[in-house]
Amino acid sequence: MRKSYIMPGFKPTLGFTLVYLCLIVLIPLSTLFFKSMELSAEDFFNIITHKRVVASFRVSFTTALVAASIASIFGFIIAWTFVRYSFPGKRLLDALIDLPFALPTAVAGIVLATIYQPNGLIGQWLMQGFGVQVAYKPLGIVVALIFISLPFVVRTVEPVLQEFDSSMEEAAASLGASRLQVFVKIIFPNIFPALLTGFALAFARGIGEYGSVIFIAGNLPYVSEIVPLMIVTRLEQYDIPGATAIALTMLLISFVMLLVINLLQLWVRKRSGQL
């Protein structure tokens, strides 16, 4: 069944898309499953429950979670000020928000490491002023992931705020609501699904992030070693089954989390009447 039977090019375009998709994406990805199947269940289990691997999962998930949360709060504030207020240089700064998308992660990595190392520009100040060390600690991973996460949040919240029907605010105001009530009861519930999407995207990206993290993380086993680095390390030791098992586990976990977050979002949207 075709929507538009007069439009030309169905077979060649779909055919090319499918072949290309299979060759570049699906077949290579499927090797993860097939290679893992060469392992016995016990070996697989042993690999992924190795103490150091478990620790790296804990590091990756907690840092990504914390970073996505912080990025959500500040991303929301940034989107809010960009949409609602006017101040000089706004358009330039707005364009700059996408920098983490455009800047190669290796560059971000070495720059952030330079800034936050104990004798770096901010690192020095934090070290001397508060005795806090950022670089080469889990905190460094969080900082790098906040950098990566920020545009995901801002770019999902911004358009929703822009399209927000402000007559709802006026209606609420005319019914006697205070500004805080208007925000809490009218604006925030309408923005929340978008914020959740931004959070989910940031979180998913954060778990897999590699380039911007490894320079600042210090990569201490059990402390600041992330899962992607575990995979690379195993690979460099020619432990391909190990790398594959960890990679597959990580892939599956992030798919499940994405699924959960999507369902959560569906539920939120339904509850707030946006579906």
Binding site: V25, L29, P228, I231, A247
Partner: peptide, 28 residues
């Protein structure tokens, strides 16, 4: 421009590389 079975699956699969860690993308 066309209607076919599995269309939404295809749309999802096209986005798939975005949700795969770069390291895994190399590994495969």
């Amino acid at each position: 421009r066309f209607e076919f079975t599995g269309k939404s699956l295809l749309t999802t699969l096209i986005d798939l590389p975005f949700s795969v860690s770069p390291v895994i993308s190399g590994l495969i």
